[in-house]
Amino acid sequence: MTSVVSSTSTASRAAKAESSAVAGRDLRLLMVVPGVVVIAGLFIYPFIYGFISSFNPQGENAGWLANYQRFFSEPRLYDTVRKTLWLAMPVTLLNVGLAVPFAFMLRTPSRGQRLLSTLLVIPMTLGTVLVAEGLMLYLAPNGWLNRTLLEFGILGSPLRLLNNYWGVALSLLITGFPFAFMMMLSYTTGIDPTLARAAATLGATPLAQFRRIYLPLLVPGLTITFCLTFVQAFAVFPSAVLLGAPAGATRVISIAAYEMAYEEYNWSMASTVAMVMGATQLIIVGFVLVLRQLSYRGPVVGGKG
């Protein structure tokens, strides 16, 4: 008897919960509210604010597009886009290009794989500032790298790797490659290995397995990895100042945005530069996604997506 009562009451409770959920009045839904408020207030609102303020230039009788006109007429502003792309593009291609075969090679779980991922997380966790500090010593004319090359007679005079393009590119390689590798590794290990084994029994060489099975399944992951690695590299800031030539070859767009905000105190212009930065990232990401759509050759299953 009691069991019948309790089961009916559970059923009615469940029905009640169901109906209230359907009506959108499940109180548990309130749990998501604080998180949404944080993101809406601290991410979406500032973004909209920055967007609007970029069309409200500081100064007397300036037109609503004055900030953008200024950006695209001053070489020291518009040239930053080219310089940033010139840094971010080759490094991203290299990082992702290396990450794919490496992740494929190390796809089977092993002690080595775990040790390697542990070691590779270190430069990412330390962050760009510390990597820059290390590279300042390591790449210096009397640093360990140049010393080794000189001692072994590979070079006659030390390589100049600091305060120019190369220092920044190397720092982007050191922080970007582990990121790209780890992402690709998690996509590669998500592909069912029986697919490749089936191909192997039919006589596919490892290269053919990679080209015909893994690569098509990896395309979605590859696209995402490329976009994320690129966007990170495009936003390079501390290492461009510390290891590069912040007034010359590595005057990247984030330096321009920083100068506008904290040296000229022109916040509306700083927002404009930030908007251009965001738009450039969006254009490149959109371009890569369209490219992927165009190369789509049929439904892809088996990957984690």
Partner: peptide, 15 residues
Amino acid sequence: LLVPPITYGIPLATV
């Protein structure tokens, strides 16, 4: 998580 901090950091700092 996907947008680099420096991109949204300047409008956020303004606010």
